[in-house]
Design a binder for these strands. Structure first.
Lengths: 88, 88
DNA sequence: TGTATATTTAGACAAATATCTAAATATTTT
DNA sequence: AAAATATTTAGATATTTGTCTAAATATACA
């Protein structure tokens, strides 16, 4: 859980997740959208991967990144524990 | 939103939030539960306050900290946007 | 008014993080 | 096989973060 919050604690990484909502994208396509070097984006992608927020699939020389939304369930669950219970 | 993710990105701070679920607590009562100095806990509390995850109320020489769960709604909403929509 | 208690603020420091450039690896194309 | 393309890994550096001790502030009590 630690690693998920860590991965989410960066605007660039959150933006990457938002980008992946529509389509899977290659590392290069993702990097093009930022004024940050490719290696830096690669590092961000690595953190997202460590948190299992994204998965990868190699196709030829490209690596496609996809969103994995199942991890978010855990965080949502943790957050909702704080909300007062509704009756019924 | 940035600041909320930042506040949540620390095990000590998340534990403080969990402690506040049951009762409001003073800074001192919170600090007693950790092997960390009072000033450090005070700093964590400040970050939680900046994120509006907690509110404070002064009573005499004590400062009571309370959970504010409304902030979590925003984060939950952000996280749920990624989940594929269910067909009703 | 002076002392004890509760908490924060200030300043210092080590560890973690985001970024960069250069080099390495893997795949495709010519 | 060599060159081009896509991406990662390595190593360096500046910034941010969590922690500490010491000092400051605020309230209560004697």
């Amino acid at each position: 859980m630690n690693i998920v919050f860590k991965a989410l604690n960066d605007a660039t990484r959150r933006q990457i997740l938002e980008m992946l909502q529509k389509n899977d994208l290659t590392a290069g396509e993702i990097a093009e959208n930022f004024n940050i070097s490719f290696p830096s984006i690669s590092h961000h992608l690595d953190l997202l991967k460590q948190a299992k927020l994204v998965t990868t699939k190699k196709e030829g020389q490209f690596i496609y990144y996809s969103l994995n939304t199942t991890v978010m369930d855990e965080i949502v669950k943790w957050l909702l524990q704080f909300k007062p219970k509704k009756n019924k």
